[in-house]
Amino acid sequence: MKVDFNKSKDGLVPAIIQDASTKNVLMLGYMNQEALDKTMQTGKVTFFSRSKERLWTKGEESGHFLTVREIKEDCDRDTLLVSVTPNGPTCHTGSDTCWNGENRASFGFLTELESVIAERQNAANSENSYVASLFEKGINKIAQKVGEEAVELVIEAKDSNEELFLNEGADLLFHYLILLRAKGLGLEDIVKVLEQRH
């Protein structure tokens, strides 16, 4: 890396700290050449603290170190993206992130869909909700629906109608999310299993 520390008067560049697994931004700090060198040597994120006016390894007091997985420089060579594995909360307040957010994996729209399914599971009236009615019928009915959708997907996979195949795939995934919820699990749990296998 050839980081251009001379672009700023104080010789510091922003270092964006991102969880290597969840991809959430955890915090922002500043590094000079010495801080970057120490970070690369030790494998633990070290900043130049502007308030303490010295090098500061994140976690040196709390024990909540940030273990480095990868460091990238941006196209202008004046900002760093540091992928890490956090050992505990990142913020000094005890929060997972310095924006007071939870450091949980997000799967975009699928995470939103999981939230909707959870809301429907707790709905008082199942007459107006297909999902709530499935939960009311119990795990056997939900599992049966997953099986039916899986068979329909296999049938469509043998034909050449892409639209029908995608629709059946969406139906299977939707019902599988319901089944996961019924078992008290979610996509995060499946991803953990896949990561362990990988």
Rank of each mutant, 00 (worst) to 15 (best):
E136G: 07
N125H: 13
V116N: 07
D10F: 06
V116W: 04
D4M: 10
N24G: 03
N122G: 11
G43S: 00
V191E: 12
E162F: 15
F5N: 08
E53V: 03
L173K: 04
V82M: 09
D74V: 14
D19W: 00
F48E: 01
E162G: 09
D78I: 13
L173A: 06
E136A: 12
V151K: 05
E156G: 06
T97D: 11
G186K: 13
G43P: 02
V193A: 10
G101V: 04
R50L: 00
R120T: 00
I16V: 15
Y176I: 14
T93G: 05
Q18A: 03
K183L: 14
V191M: 15
L153D: 07
I117N: 01
N87K: 05
V151M: 10
E114Q: 10
S8P: 12
F109Y: 14
G11C: 02
I142W: 12
T79P: 15
T67P: 03
R104A: 10
K44C: 04
A123G: 01
K2M: 13
S129F: 12
L179C: 01
Y30K: 08
T42S: 12
I117Q: 00
R104T: 13
L179T: 02
V146H: 08
K137G: 01
V151C: 07
T79L: 13
Q18G: 06
A170R: 06
E152V: 01
T93S: 11
D171K: 05
W56S: 14
G169M: 15
G108S: 02
W56A: 07
G147A: 12
E168Y: 08
L179K: 01
Y176N: 13
T90Q: 00
G29I: 01
L177T: 04
F65G: 14
